[in-house]
Every structure is written in structure tokens, then in C-alpha cells.
């Protein structure tokens, strides 16, 4: 895509966010939108790994938790300012991501899925069992909110803007990354690792780098989540959260930056809408997931575009 089109679309996206942020005044809706923003960050990071580099991870909730617990521990046990813990959390997750990614990405296919899944479960056990620091199964209470000047960022409008500003930033960043030399190398890697290696791409290093990048994004999402909610517990970073992240990516559309936004929105909003079904909620949720994937295996983004294109071809045929 041309950089001009990307610039326009990002600009309109940012304007849309400002409009929604100012227009929505109900705290519940603001909060829901904020959570969607956090999930978008998670989905986008994972999409860079899954969609572009073609490497699956079923344990990304580990990094989401690493960010949340990292900053939670620094700010509650050591009374750091949240701003001081931000760089530490990001650097740590980057290093940990690389150190884990390098060996684990030697695996491929289902074995990689299993390896990352194991990683997620080990992280979850650490969050739950290391109770002197993490608060154990009962959770970690009293994480201070982020403060900018005299403005306290909470789950309302302030948090909304903080989270979505981050999302826009990463949209731009990921967009540029995808179009860059690294992006082309990534896609080569995703299409055919052998061919990529043959053309001089250091695949093991590149895979670990993109793994680390997605880990940083997940950790950042966790950081924001912890400070906005003020409370974290291990159940938010379990195996099911990892699966939910993968679902967001696949439902939205692999290798699509906008698909991450769509996937995160749908997966976050669906349970809220399905509340009316009460006892049938779980059935409805599972059914929708299946139906979407059966009929739109490329994800919603691709599906919506295809439908749009079909409609245009039809219209074109009708007018001629």
C-alpha cells in the first residue's frame, strides 16, 4: 500500500478516535473501548508474529502478564513511580522475549504451538505461586494509576485516550515496519523459511527479533492494563487468554493491521452483546466463532472486503 494512503487512513483513524473519545460520555462504554484498545495492542503484536512471520504462539498471555506483574511489583513492593517502571518493563520483556524466542522458535508447527503453550502455563504458575511478590491467587492489589501532571489516568476518558494514542502509535510503527526491509524479510520468512534463508536472511535471529517485538507490545498492553485497572490476578493471564489472543488475530484476519483492530473489537464486544442469551451465551459464542471461520476462513477483514468487491462487480455487471 502506498505510504500516502496509509498516512490518510491513519489520520482519519486518529480523528475517529478523538471523535469517539469526546462523544462517548458513558463510563461503561469508555471503559469497554479502553479494554478494546488494550486487546488491539495484544492482537497487533501477535499478528506481527503470526500473520507476517508465520510463527504461532499459544502462550502470549505470559508477556501480557509479565508487563502487568512487572510494573505491579515495582510500583507496589518497591514504591517506584509507574513512569520509572515503564522502561524497565519494556526492556525486560524485550530481552526475555529474545532469550526465549531464540531457542523456542527452532520448533515449528504444532511443536511450536506446544512449546509456547507450555511457556504460557509456566508463566501462569509463576504468577500464581510466587505469592510474596505477586500476591498469589488472590491477586495484586493497590497498583497506583498513571499520573500526568495533575491528570490521573483511570479507566474513563483519560485512560481511553492514553490507550488509543498508544494504539495509533503502534499502527504507524507496525505499518512502517511491514513496508520496510524487515517487513519484506518477515513475509519471505512466513512464506518460505528455506527460501528466506537462501536469500541471506538470518532467519533464527529475525524470528527471535519479531517474537521479542510482539512480546514488548504485549507487555506494554499489560502495563497499561495493570495501571488502569489497579488490580491484577493470575486468571487474567492464563491459557484461555492466550487462546483468546490467537482468536482475535485469526478472526480479524492474519497479516492485516486493521484486522487486529477488528478482531480485538469483535472478541471483546461479543460476550457483552451475548449477555442477553444468559445461559445460552457460551453456546452462541462458540457457534459464532465456528460460523465465522467456516464461511470466512481468511478472517472478517478479508471477508468484508470480498463481499464489498463482489457487490461492486455485481453492480458493474448490472450497469453495463
Amino acid at each position: 500500500m502506498s505510504s500516502r494512503a496509509r498516512l490518510y487512513s491513519t489520520g482519519i483513524f486518529a480523528l475517529g478516535i478523538v471523535a469517539v473519545g469526546l462523544g462517548v460520555s458513558n463510563p461503561y462504554e469508555q471503559q469497554l473501548l479502553t479494554i478494546i484498545g488494550i486487546h488491539t495492542l495484544l492482537a497487533l503484536g501477535l499478528n506481527m508474529l503470526m500473520g507476517y512471520a508465520g510463527q504461532i504462539s499459544l502462550g502470549h498471555a505470559a508477556f501480557f502478564g509479565l508487563g502487568a506483574y512487572g510494573t505491579g511489583i515495582f510500583t507496589t513492593h518497591f514504591q517506584w513511580s509507574p513512569w520509572a517502571s515503564l522502561p524497565v518493563v519494556l526492556v525486560t520483556s524485550c530481552l526475555v522475549g529474545y532469550a526465549i524466542g531464540r531457542p523456542i522458535l527452532r520448533l515449528s508447527g504444532y511443536y511450536l504451538a506446544m512449546g509456547t503453550l507450555g511457556l504460557g502455563i509456566i508463566a501462569h504458575v509463576i504468577f500464581r505461586e510466587w505469592d510474596t511478590f505477586t500476591g498469589g491467587a488472590s491477586g495484586l492489589v493497590g497498583i497506583p494509576p498513571l499520573v500526568v501532571g495533575r491528570l490521573v489516568l483511570g479507566l474513563g476518558r483519560t485512560g481511553f485516550f492514553a490507550v488509543w494514542a498508544t494504539v495509533v502509535l503502534f499502527f504507524v510503527l507496525c505499518g512502517r515496519l511491514v513496508d520496510s526491509r524487515i517487513g519484506r524479510a518477515l513475509r519471505a520468512l512466513g512464506d518460505s523459511p528455506g527460501a528466506a534463508a537462501a536469500s541471506g536472511i538470518h532467519t533464527a535471529h529475525l524470528k527471535a527479533v519479531i517474537f521479542s517485538f510482539s512480546a514488548v507490545m504485549a507487555a506494554l498492553a499489560g502495563y497499561l492494563y495493570a495501571h488502569l485497572l489497579g488490580f491484577i490476578s493470575p486468571s487474567s493471564f492464563d491459557f484461555l487468554m492466550s487462546i483468546r489472543m490467537v482468536t482475535m488475530v485469526v478472526i480479524g484476519g492474519m497479516a492485516s493491521i486493521w484486522g487486529s483492530l477488528l478482531g480485538a473489537s469483535v472478541i471483546t464486544l461479543l460476550p457483552e452483546w451475548l449477555h442477553v442469551f444468559s445461559d445460552y451465551e457460551m453456546m452462541a459464542y462458540g457457534l459464532i466463532l465456528m460460523v465465522v471461520m467456516i464461511f470466512l476462513p481468511q478472517g472478517l477483514t478479508r471477508g468484508v472486503l470480498d463481499a464489498f468487491q463482489r457487490a461492486r462487480t455485481l453492480r458493474g455487471a448490472a450497469s453495463s
Binding site: I243, V246, T247, V250, I251, Y280, E281, M282, M283, A284, Y285, G286, L287, I288, L289, M290, M293, I294
Partner: peptide
């Protein structure tokens, strides 16, 4: 993902 959906559906 379809089988994940199926598992949620069957659980429901």
C-alpha cells in the same frame, strides 16, 4: 479456531 469454537459450543 473452528475446533476451539466447537469446544466452547459443546461446553455450553
Amino acid at each position: 479456531i473452528i475446533t476451539v469454537g466447537a469446544s466452547i459450543f459443546l461446553r455450553g
